[in-house]
């Protein structure tokens, strides 16, 4: 049941955006796809309602939150703080997601990762990235 509603709701939300589609010409194909999605979404929802399905297994929010947070932090920090500090923060947050390492070992790992990445991306591949923040 949960599955059905989830999938249905997810898909039903999609066509809302298709309102912003351009002229008839450009919008034709997306509308076609959206229409199909709505139809199938309804079908899935119906099927989900009919057979009282198994509930999906428990959701684990912590890894979900931390893993995505680390990517967002990367995006937010990179331009301000430079490559080294950003990566350190990202690696730290990422290791928190697993709750398997204590903070010292996580920091150590983060340090090693920063060095490895600097060596790989900046020295070996020669990408134009700033290592330290602009002062």
């Amino acid at each position: 049941m949960f599955i059905g509603i989830g999938a249905g709701g997810l898909m039903l939300a999609m066509p809302l955006e298709s309102g912003t589609a351009g002229a008839m010409e450009a919008g034709f194909y997306p509308r076609l796809v959206c229409a199909l999605i709505i139809a199938l979404g309804c079908l899935t929802a119906l099927a989900g309602l009919l057979r009282k399905g198994e509930l999906p297994e428990a959701w684990h929010w912590w890894p979900l939150l931390m893993v995505s947070a680390s990517a967002v932090v990367f995006a937010a920090l990179l331009d301000i703080a430079g490559f080294a500090i950003t990566l350190f923060a990202v690696a730290l947050i990422a290791s928190l997601a697993g709750r398997l390492l204590n903070i010292w070992r996580a920091a150590m790992l983060a340090g090693v990762l920063v060095l490895m990445n600097i060596a790989l991306f900046i020295f070996a591949l020669g990408l134009p990235l700033r290592i330290w923040p602009r002062i």
Partner: peptide, 20 residues
């Protein structure tokens, strides 16, 4: 190699890789 060391490395790689 324990996964605890592995996955932060993968996440960092993914982030840097996508950015580049």
């Amino acid at each position: 190699v324990p996964y605890a060391f592995l996955f932060p490395a993968i996440i960092v790689f993914c982030a840097v890789g996508t950015y580049t």
